[in-house]
Design a protein around this nucleic acid. Structure first.
Lengths: 340, 340
DNA sequence: CTGTTAGCGCGTTCAC
DNA sequence: GTGAACGCGCTAACAG
């Protein structure tokens, strides 16, 4: 007794159209080897019978699928949603489906997802960042499946990568701050080691302030949770202790929370304190005060990554490592420190 | 000549372990029919050889996969990201992988995605809302695959649904507004027909103001794009024309844009004008003024939906239609109109 | 241009 | 408790 109504298969179509199974297969896939007339007849019958090829069967034969795996840290916060959007649009129109995972920044979770995905023989795999479980790298390096690492960059990717230079981003912020005369920088982020990209930006910031400003960068690393609240709380903690003159944030959301904190305490921005975000999110467009930030081209990054990967899938030569430019945007939350 | 290195298959493991293919199959799947000792031996060998079952082959035999399809309108704006997060967490720990789609509110796009997905014989399919292409309903009704419709509700779902009552949400806002003495309501949304849930909320609002307030609800429907900007622009248009005393928004993001617009024009909120959002997003938590809104339990909705669906997959009886409660949150952006 | 043969890797069935 | 057949639906390779 069959558990479910069997859908029409290629054999049913062939019988009804009075041709062989292979002709149907060829007609459906649009490959050569069928006369235009038979092809038209077959397609008509197939449509009538609502025939839908079984992807598992096809995948089994060709050792390959039209599935593309995408692993993201999280959906929260627009950033990865933007990247994902760019990629999905590109893959979708190329006929691929996206199998998506969120790791919550846990390399073990990423690894076990990669294992499961591999069992589907996906056309490609996309991972966020360049820091993975050693076994993930090993597994993927050994497999012939194209791999894209996105959002960060390295000279030694698993396969190919498209991203930005986070260390450089930190430097750019630092240079801006130094040139305006800021001396007591601080950074509000998540716990160290949680987000390697954020850590890299902090390092970039430190590389500037170390030699130039002579001051270390105070870092506040509140626990996880809502970015707005985290920014607010992290700022409160810094203001209580270190008395910085400029605070840089993991992202614009946190910066906004920080801005609210400063306002709540009656501090004037940028008079008393400078605020710098990261990403150039839409949120900033309606704020009464333009946020100093670095705009990352997330959607473009997604599209670029997807295109390179498609090329890679089709055997077209592709650059191994692509670094997208950063756009520094000086806003109204930082200004010259004339009180020196 | 094989195109790619063949991964180890079940036969390889069987040979190496000195048993039959079937024993390996049973051992791996954890079903009865193997002695504990042989099972242990087999699992050890399998691990050594890094054996990973081929999902396509398995799927072909059992006419079924561990893939779950999830269709969302968009990733933008936290709302669907929250729902998705709740669902993914639940499915993931149950061993399912998520194939995700974004339709951008286009029923045709949804349909063609459903078609593609069906070719993978997924364990279940999740669609957002209850308005679909007729053929989508037909296709899914005819198939034995469990279907969950989420975020909205109806007495006649394709299979099962979990959501909220959007019409009622509009009513709640209307009742609040009327009780505070507001008379000239307005609604800022997206173009009519674009988002059926938003339309339903507007209808709910109208159902209150029609009889009680005697005034119709002015509606501003700017074109699509960034929600903050849309809220800002839609508000500007309303203020220029209709002179409302309370403006309700599609969501909190738009409400925030509207709030900024009012502030930019020197209007006092809630003195001159009331502002009401929708969803109860995290954004609101750091605003200097608590936003009047309706909190939707999006993550809970995702988890609930996923649980019901898993029950459905496993043949456990499940409620057909589940409506989650709404939490009205009176904030500081609406108050009594004492100037009547 | 068309059809036939022979699997793809695994799970069900039914022997032993 | 274990193993040998067979078939899931489809396509590559070859024949005609």
């Amino acid at each position: 007794m069959p558990r479910r109504a069997t859908p029409t298969k290629i054999e049913d179509v062939a019988r009804r159209a009075g041709v062989s199974v292979m002709s149907v297969s060829r007609a459906i896939r649009g490959v050569e080897g069928v006369s235009e007339k038979t092809r038209a007849d077959i397609l008509k019958v197939a449509r009538q019978m609502k025939y839908m090829p079984n992807s598992a069967a096809r995948s089994l034969v060709v050792s390959n699928s039209n599935l593309i795996g995408i692993s993201l840290p999280t959906f929260a916060g627009e950033v990865f949603a933007d990247i994902l959007n760019g990629m999905r649009q590109t893959f979708d129109s190329a006929g691929y489906s996206s199998v998506i995972d969120t790791t919550e920044y846990d390399p073990d979770a990423e690894l076990s997802w990669v294992r499961r995905l591999l069992s589907w023989q996906p056309a490609a795999i996309i991972l966020t960042g360049i820091d993975h479980h050693p076994e993930t790298r090993e597994l993927l390096r050994a497999s012939p499946i194209p791999v894209l690492e996105i959002w960060d960059h390295t000279d030694d990717p698993i396969d190919i990568c498209v991203g930005i230079d986070h260390f450089r981003a930190g430097q750019m912020i630092g240079e801006h701050a130094v040139s305006l005369g800021y001396r007591r920088p601080a950074f509000v982020s998540t716990p160290l080691g949680h987000d390697k990209r954020a850590d890299a930006r902090l390092e970039g910031l430190r590389s500037v302030f170390g030699p130039a400003g002579g001051a270390d960068v105070a870092a506040s690393r509140p626990s996880l949770g809502n970015a707005f609240v985290t920014g607010f709380d992290g700022t409160a903690k810094l203001l209580d202790a270190d008395c910085p003159d400029i605070i840089c944030y993991l992202n614009d959301h946190m910066a906004f929370g920080g801005l609210m904190c400063c306002q709540a305490r009656g501090l004037s921005v940028p008079g008393d304190i400078g605020i710098v975000g990261f990403n150039g999110l839409d949120l900033a467009t309606v704020l009464p005060m333009k946020l100093t930030t670095i705009r990352t081209q997330r959607r473009l990054m997604g599209i670029t990554g997807a295109r390179h990967l498609l090329a890679r899938i089709n055997g077209v030569p592709t650059p191994e490592s692509t670094v997208l430019p950063l756009q520094f945007e000086a806003g109204q939350t930082t200004c010259d420190q004339i009180d020196l």
